[in-house]
Amino acid sequence: MTAQTARTAPSATAVRGMRRKALWVAQILLAAFLLIASGLPKLMGQADAVESFEQIGWGQWFRYVTGVVEVAGAIGLLIPRLAGLAAAGLIGLMAGAILTQILVLDPAWSAMPAAFAVVFAAIAWDRRAETRELLRSLKR
């Protein structure tokens, strides 16, 4: 590596900062989606949400539970101390959504929760120190 390359290459701290900013943008966008386009329609009984959960066959109580988990996850994504834990929990929700799409609803739509799960995994990984500290504080 030349002296010129060393001066122009971003430091590890700068790269970490850029990555954290990009993940914050993703967290905000995903939280908005989960809250506005997914969780609230389930909780408010939007017709297509009711119909989807009828097709799933677990009853409308499951629609409410899913809506509450999505809203809680959206809020958690916006709180730095909770973001990693929320992202990890949302990975589980997305795994269920993927399986439901493949096995019950429309397999083509399983790509969307799969893509979300990848982003949630990146958020959970990036926030692992905060999650570890949160879990330690709960043990005390």
Rank of each mutant, 00 (worst) to 15 (best):
L30R: 11
A37C: 00
W24K: 07
T8I: 09
A122E: 09
A72H: 07
A49F: 09
S38C: 06
L103D: 03
D126A: 03
S52L: 08
A86P: 02
M44L: 10
A31K: 02
E133T: 14
R127W: 12
A74W: 09
V65C: 03
L134V: 10
D126G: 00
I56L: 07
A72I: 14
G89I: 15
P10R: 00
D106Q: 15
A12G: 07
R19A: 01
P107M: 04
F33C: 09
R140E: 06
T8M: 01
Y64Q: 02
T5R: 10
A14I: 05
A22K: 04
E133R: 13
G89A: 10
G92Q: 04
T100N: 11
L78P: 05
P41V: 07
A111E: 10
G89Y: 04
A14F: 01
A32L: 06
K139Y: 08
A111H: 12
M1I: 00
G92R: 08
F62Q: 02
F53N: 03
I28T: 08
R16F: 02
R140D: 05
L43H: 07
L77Y: 11
V15H: 03
L34D: 11
I28K: 04
F62T: 02
E133N: 14
V69A: 08
M18I: 14
R132C: 10
G96T: 12
A3L: 03
F33Y: 06
V68E: 06
A124M: 03
S11P: 04
A87C: 12
Q27A: 04
A86C: 07
L93F: 12
L23A: 00
L40V: 12
E130T: 11
T13Y: 01
L29R: 01
I79V: 15
G96Q: 14
L43M: 09
R16D: 05
G73W: 15
G89M: 13
I102V: 15
M94F: 13
K139H: 14
G73T: 07
A74C: 09
L43C: 06
G92A: 11
L82D: 02
T66L: 09
